[in-house]
Every structure is written in structure tokens, then in C-alpha cells.
């Protein structure tokens, strides 16, 4: 602004046209805006590479610690390898722990001044949140890739062909998407970003312990086994074990018999509840 300001040839905004158009056009802009916001969040990651190292150190640690420390003393129904049993569980557990990062990032973001600009722009109202979800899903894909490589190194294999393996990864990512929306909602509800991690860990830890991640539910006391069998995490883990052809599937409960259905149903239900609540909450921030 040290020089004289000239009259620029300013492009006209398409926004007015878009906002006046029908639901199909709105949906299209919601997707485009969400994608633009995803790009913004990915650029944040690129600008703080130390975070990427953190992202990947946790899942690798999970594989090594649980695979080798616990693995020596754990039994698997049907006499399989414990590490093959464990890996699908670690995939899902890593998805769950991503929830903390999602929640704290959305909480920090919601406190930034730039939110006012987003809210005063003619962009889709959902875009800041779908952009977060999109970026976290991409991050989850990278985490899964690292975990798969780690798994292969410690002896885990998929045994039912690439199609089933891709389906298993799809179900795991679907769960992650649901957890991302839960994390977004949590992040918008807590008044202070610092409290997010304090809240998330006590929620996440019992959820993994009371599931089939480490131990097959039929090896637990009956009442614990029932809780573990109906745990949404267990559904995805059991479905993934089934699709990967890893040991430890089975069990008599209805939940264990219908793991695939539940692995698809739980996340969809969770998204249907949390996503609209989160968007609504975001629109009412500071108003």
C-alpha cells in the first residue's frame, strides 16, 4: 500500500449465481468448497512436518509394543498367530486415536480469527468441517499405509485377495470418517482446545480395552464379552479380520455373526447423528 492504488480489473464473483441456484448446484459447491478447505488443511500439515512424524510414530509403536510385548503371552481362538490377529485391531485403534487430533485441531481452528472470514464468505456452511473431515481422512489413509507396511514386516498378511483387503480398508476408513465427525463435534463443544485431549483419552482408552482389539470376546467373562462384542470398534475389527482372512473371528453372539452389517451400520448411524449436529453447532459459534 506504499504505492498508489489503481483500479484493478476485478473478476466478478460467481457466488451470487451459485447461491441463487438449486439444490444440485448447492451440493456441487459444498463438495468443491469442502475440497478447497481440505487443501487448506493439508497445507497446514505440510508447513509443520514435525507433526507428520508424530502421526506415524504412534501407530508404529502400537504394532511393535502390542505385537511383541503382549503377543508372546496372548492366545487366539482357532490357534492363529497373535500378531495376525492383532493387526486389524491396531488399524482400528489408530483410527480411534486420530479422533483426539481432529477434535483439538477443530477447536483451535474455531478460536482463530480466520473463522470470521470463512463465515462472512459465500462458501458452503459445511465446508470448514467437511474440509477437516477430508484432510483427516487423507491423513488416515497415510497412517493405514504405514501400518500395512509395518504389519507386513512383522508377519501380518491379507489372505483373501486384494478385493477383500480393499473392502476391509474401506470399512476401516468409514469408521474413521464417523470418528472424525464425532471428533469435530467434540472439538466444537469444548470451550477450550487444551481440554480436548484430556477428554478424549479417557473416552478412547476403555473403548479399545472393552473391544476385540486385543482379546477375542469369547475369551472374556460373559458380561464383558457381550459389551466387547457390541462395541462399534469390534464390529469393524471383526469385519476386517474376516475380509483380510486373519484369525480370531467367530463367536456366538448376534453381533459377532453380523460383523459386516454392523461395521457398515454403526459408522453410518454415527455420521447421521454427529455431522448435522456439528454443522449446526459451527454455524452458531459466537452468535
Amino acid at each position: 500500500m506504499t504505492t498508489t492504488v489503481e483500479t484493478p480489473r476485478v473478476p466478478s464473483s460467481h457466488a451470487e449465481r451459485a447461491s441463487a441456484a438449486g439444490p444440485l448446484s448447492r451440493l456441487r459447491w459444498a463438495v468443491v468448497d469442502g475440497w478447497v478447505m481440505t487443501g487448506r488443511n493439508m497445507r497446514h500439515v505440510i508447513r509443520s512436518p514435525e507433526e507428520i512424524v508424530l502421526y506415524f510414530s504412534l501407530p508404529i509403536m502400537f504394532v511393535l509394543v502390542f505385537g511383541y510385548v503382549f503377543g508372546s503371552g496372548m492366545a487366539v481362538p482357532g490357534d492363529g498367530s497373535y500378531r495376525e490377529f492383532l493387526l486389524p485391531g491396531v488399524f482400528v485403534m489408530t483410527m480411534l486415536y486420530g479422533l483426539g487430533a481432529t477434535a483439538s485441531q477443530i477447536a483451535v481452528d474455531a478460536g482463530r480469527g480466520v473463522v470470521d472470514r470463512f463465515r462472512s464468505l459465500p462458501m458452503a456452511r459445511s465446508a470448514p468441517l467437511t474440509g477437516r473431515a477430508g484432510a483427516d481422512l487423507l491423513r488416515a489413509l497415510l497412517e493405514l499405509a504405514v501400518l500395512v507396511v509395518c504389519g507386513l514386516l512383522v508377519g501380518w498378511r491379507w489372505r483373501n485377495g486384494v478385493g477383500d483387503a480393499v473392502a476391509a480398508v474401506g470399512l476401516i476408513l468409514l469408521l474413521r470418517l464417523a470418528l472424525t465427525w464425532l471428533g469435530i463435534l467434540l472439538g466444537l463443544l469444548v470451550p477450550n482446545p487444551d481440554t480436548v485431549s484430556v477428554i478424549v483419552f479417557p473416552l478412547a482408552f476403555p473403548l479399545t480395552a472393552l473391544s476385540n482389539v486385543f482379546v477375542a470376546p469369547e475369551l472374556l467373562p460373559e458380561w464383558l464379552g457381550a459389551i466387547a462384542a457390541w462395541n462399534p470398534l469390534s464390529a469393524t475389527v471383526a469385519a476386517a479380520r474376516d475380509l483380510f482372512g486373519n484369525p480370531g473371528i467367530g463367536g456366538e453372539s448376534w453381533a459377532a455373526q453380523h460383523a459386516l452389517l454392523l461395521a457398515a451400520g454403526w459408522p453410518v448411524l454415527l455420521i447421521a447423528v454427529t455431522a448435522p449436529l456439528a454443522v449446526r453447532r459451527y454455524q452458531r459459534l459466537s452468535s
Binding site: S13, S19, R40, H44, S48, R112, V114, D116, R117, P122
Partner: peptide
Amino acid sequence: ERVRAAIGLTGQYAAVDETL
């Protein structure tokens, strides 16, 4: 949404993304 398409806002605190 029509209002947002027609206005610009520069607030008391710079509303820019500090990381980008």
C-alpha cells in the same frame, strides 16, 4: 448467502490464516 456474496469484511483483528 446473498449478503455474503455482495460484501467484504475487514475486522478489528486480521482474519487471515496465519499458517498459510
